[in-house]
Amino acid sequence: MSREQILNAAVMLALVAFPLWAWAADEPFLITLTTKAAILALAGVGLNIALGLGGLVSLGHAAFFGIGGYAMGVLASHAQLYDPILESPFLIEGTKSMPIIWLVAITASGLAALAIGALSLRTSGVYFIMITLAFGQMLYFFAISWPAYGGEDGLSIYARNDFPGLNTLDPIQFYIIVLALLAAVLLLTSRLAKSPFGLALNAARQSPVRVETVGISPYRLRLIAFTISGMITGLAGALFADLNRFVSPTMLSWQTSGEIMVFVIIGGVARLFGPVVGAMLFILLEHLLGGLSDYWHVYLGVLLLLIVLFARGGVIGSLAGRGKAHD
């Protein structure tokens, strides 16, 4: 096993052991905190497919995170009011069932990623960064000015949605669902990176001209990667809204995009567990520094600056040495 694999195993062990300890010690708040970290990690794992594998610096992933959140909010709010979403030409009712909500969230954010990606990927470099940022902002303003689902105030859901056989209101049971999804997506991502598709995508990042020469279109590879990336971040959005029982335009704001990107960078770009380590560290810092000072973002900013300037490769890069480097 390489050092990175040992590190990954240790992180996975911590994700299982720490909440179990918190459960035994009757500290539900710590379980909820870990749940939040795991959900944000999932959003980061999504972004990492575009950013790490594809080299696509998307500053608009809040769009997919928010769409996932609103998919949950819209379905659950219709269900709790017994008010069908659509009556004619056919009946569509709201639902409180998590698997259906996930499916809708993944589909909706995937379609959005396909549309935004198809336009944004016509460009590259700085244009791509600015355009993804702008499209994210477009959805943010749309959510604010569209009054049907709460507008600026957001949408509250009274009870967490249901999962067959589990009591989702119990923190540890909800955490198990989140952890299972995170583990499944991590497995999927590691398979994806080693698949012919992942290898071609990696090659398209390093040398698009050569990839094109052997008859593969880099545009299509990137569009597929961007779509998958959006779907995963959308799923995380649905879970995040379910965790808070609340969804608001803040989920769509550009700061959210920036934070998701920060998880990936702190942990390590293109590392399988980079976003997981990054999100855990972010939540830990938020919890520790946030208790010390209301202005903890200053410290976060300084830390981030130091990581970018002096510790390239993030935490995993520093601990496990150069593996698959970003560039």
Partner: peptide
């Protein structure tokens, strides 16, 4: 990222 950090600061 560095300029995002500057915004936070």
């Amino acid at each position: 990222l560095a300029t995002f950090a500057l915004i936070l600061i």
